[in-house]
Design a protein around this nucleic acid. Structure first.
Lengths: 133, 133
DNA sequence: TTTAAACTCTATACTAACAATAGAGTCAAG
DNA sequence: CTTGACTCTATTGTTAGTATAGAGTTTAAA
């Protein structure tokens, strides 16, 4: 299977597959005479795994760790759990940051209506005042 | 005032001031004989404005627009309002994306306890299954 | 058999907003 | 006059790709 076929099967772009290849997440089982990457079917699963992880916003580094761990089936899986736990914490932190940002933006927005001129604009004058609470 | 002093006054790093300078958000009123940037006091205000905008996650491009608009005090301020509105929408979209991500991660995390081995790990097996709902 | 389309290759630049560094020059005090 | 603190420009790195350029390969039809 060449890279275009793999891309079709997994709904990835060719470029991102090459990217994962370069990052060492997948590897071609061989190369054709003309140096084309050749993949076997198992790469489809591996790529779906990667896609699933990326959809959860796991980084390539984290995915590499997971793939590595899955090669050590008898190890204890604490590391995996810890990784997900800290990922959840990160996401929650980002959510609360964004919520506070949203609040600030909303209140900023309330300080001006359309139909004023720039010099009367409450938004600009608010942005110009120095209290960044 | 040299760049280090300006940095101290505004609690910016020297690098980021140089960055804003390069991006055209601020500019040195002059250069010393030895080519050092020299700023006047009004730059402190401008930089605080920029910091305030950045704390609201406005992009440098957006800030440039705002600074430009504030030089046209008699224009109507719809553009400013529109910018903030669309920024709020973006932030709200990101929040809801992250909330759904959080939910998925939580449910993934519930699929495994510590003390199992990697081959029994519910997280890995979940990540391996193809349904990315 | 040739040629054209479709595919693939590597390498590079781009995205955002800086941070970090290298290597050089400038300035102030002792 | 030298030392240390400061500044300069330019380059590289960060993330996970996307988008090229320019070249080579493969496959199908003419």
């Amino acid at each position: 299977m060449k890279i275009g076929e793999l891309a079709k099967q997994t709904n990835c772009t060719v470029q991102s597959i090459r990217h994962y290849d370069k990052e060492g997440l997948i590897s071609a089982s061989a190369r054709s005479e003309g140096n084309f990457r050749l993949y076997d079917k198992s790469t489809i699963d591996r790529l779906m795994f990667i896609k699933h992880c990326r959809s959860l916003d796991l980084s390539i580094i984290e995915i590499r760790q997971l793939l590595h761990l899955s090669d050590s089936p008898d190890e204890r899986c604490e590391d995996i759990n810890r990784m997900i736990d800290s990922h959840v914490i990160e996401v929650e932190q980002r959510i609360s940051d964004l919520q506070s940002l949203r609040k600030q933006l909303k209140s900023l927005r309330n300080s001006c209506s359309d139909k004023r001129t720039v010099k009367e604009c409450g938004i600009l004058s608010n942005l110009s005042s120095h209290d960044c609470t």
